[in-house]
Amino acid sequence: MSDEKSRTVWADEDYVGAKNQSFLSRLYTGTGAFDIVGKRKMWYVISAAIMLICLLSMIFRGFTPGIDFEGGTQVSLPASASVTTDAASEVFAKTLGQEPESAQTAGSGGSATIQLRTETLSSQDASKLAHAFADAFKPDVTVADVSSSDVSSTWGQEITRKMVIALLVFLVVVFIYIAVRFDREMSAAALVSLLFDVVATAGVYSLVGWEVTPAMVIGLLTVLGFSVYDTVVVFDKVEENTRSVFATSRRTFAEQTNLAVNQTLMRSINTTVISVLPIIALMVVAVWMLGIGTLKDLALIQLVGVVVGTYSSVFLASPMLVSLKERRKDVKRHTAKVLARREKVASA
C-alpha cells in the first residue's frame, strides 16, 4: 500500500477543523494532524543518511581510544593560574619531543589538576618530565607534586568485551520483552530503532573526535534504556488505538498508529526536554565553568543519545511498525476496505 493512500484522510469527522488549528494546539491536543507515519519514506531516507554518515565516520575517521582502552601513562600535576593545559603540554613537548595524546583539567578550585595522557613512559622519562615541570612552574609545582601512573590496555579490553556482552544481552532482553508484551512486529521495529540509536550516537562521538572512555560506554548503555522507555510508551498507545481496528472501517492501521504517535508526541518532547536540561547544566557548569573535563564524555554521549532516542522512537520505530504490519494479509484487506468505503462515500 502506497504512502499516499495510507495518509490520514481529513474527511473523517474526528479530524474536521484540525488543520485550521495552530501548530501548538495541534501539538498539545494530539489530533493526528502531523502526518508522521504517512511520510515514512522521507523519515527512512533521513535515517539512512544519518546512519551512512555515522558509519563512514566510524570506518574512515574511527575513534580516539582513551588511555583506559589503549594503555599508556597518565601524568598529573596541580593546576593554577600559570599551570594550564596549554602550558603543561608545551613543557611536555619540549621535554620528550612529542605532544601528549590528551590534556585536560580535572577537579576545581584548589584541588584542580592537569592530566596529561601519553604512550607508556619509562621511569627515566617520567622522572625527567617531573623535573621539567618543577623547573618550568616553580614555585607552584615541585617534583613531589607531579605523579605518573601506568594503565594497562588489558583493563580496557576487558571493559570492551563486557560492553559488547551487555549490549547484546540488552538487545535480546528488549526483543523478548516487547514481543511478549506487544507482538513480534513491534519487537522488530524497536530493535531497528535501538540499532539506529547505537550507530548514530557512536557516529556522532566519532565525528566529534573525543576520547572513548568507560564513562562513554556507561552513557551509551544508559541512553539506550531511555530510548526503549520512549518507544514502549508510543507502542502502548498504538496498541490501545489499534486493539479493535479491524472491527471498524473508519481508519486504517497506519492512520491509527499515526494518531497514537501524535497523542504521545507532546509527552516525548516534554520527557526529552526534562532529560536534556540537566545534561546541558552538567556541560555548562561542570565542564565549562568548573573545568571538570572528565565529565564531558558522559555529558556528550547522554545529550546525543537522548535526542537520537526520541527521534528514533517517534520517526523510525512507529513508521517501521506500520511497514511491517502492512505486509500482513489482514492489514492489507482492512486498508483496502477502508479506502473502498471512502471512495464510495466520496462518489455518493
Score class of each variant (00 low, 15 high):
T120L: 09
S25R: 13
S76K: 12
V169R: 00
E185H: 13
D68Q: 10
D125C: 03
L116P: 02
S323W: 09
N20T: 13
V233W: 04
K329S: 09
R243Y: 13
R341P: 07
L265H: 06
I292K: 11
T335P: 06
G97E: 08
Q157V: 04
H131N: 12
L24V: 14
A166K: 02
V199W: 02
T213Q: 06
A132W: 03
R333I: 10
T335N: 12
S149N: 11
L52N: 08
F23R: 00
I178E: 02
A126T: 09
A112Y: 06
V204R: 05
A93N: 11
S318K: 01
R117H: 01
V199G: 05
S249E: 15
Q124S: 12
N258W: 07
G219S: 08
A106T: 09
F92K: 00
F253W: 14
V306E: 01
P78A: 07
E343K: 14
A281S: 13
N270D: 11
L168S: 12
L221F: 01
V141E: 05
K296E: 15
R184S: 11
V146H: 06
A200W: 00
G38I: 09
D330P: 06
M1R: 12
I165T: 04
S82H: 08
A200N: 01
E90C: 00
M186R: 03
Q256G: 15
S102V: 02
F196K: 02
G30M: 00
L282A: 13
Y28Q: 10
V146Y: 00
Y205V: 13
A190Q: 01
R161E: 12
R61L: 14
K344R: 14
S148K: 00
A18V: 00
D125I: 00
R341H: 12
F23T: 02
H334M: 03
A33C: 03
A88R: 03
T248C: 13
Q263A: 06
V306N: 04
I114V: 11
G225P: 04
V204Q: 03
T113D: 11
Y28G: 05
T231E: 09
V199K: 00
F226W: 08
S80I: 01
Q157Y: 09
F246M: 15
I159Q: 10
S2R: 12
V308G: 04
A281T: 13
T248G: 15
R61F: 14
V37E: 07
E4F: 14
A132I: 01
S111P: 07
R184N: 10
V174L: 05
V192D: 07
L24N: 02
A260N: 01
V83F: 01
S25P: 03
L300V: 15
Q104T: 10
R61A: 14
I114K: 07
G156R: 07
V284F: 05
A299C: 08
A254E: 10
A136V: 01
D183S: 01
V234D: 11
P65V: 08
D145K: 03
K19Q: 13
K337G: 02
L194V: 06
D140Q: 11
F34D: 04
D35K: 05
I218E: 03
S149V: 09
Q74S: 11
V284P: 07
T154Y: 08
R181Q: 05
E240F: 12
L259F: 09
F69A: 08
G109T: 08
F315Y: 12
S47Y: 03
Y205L: 15
V338G: 04
M289Y: 15
V314N: 07
I53R: 04
I279R: 00
A126M: 08
V91P: 02
G17H: 12
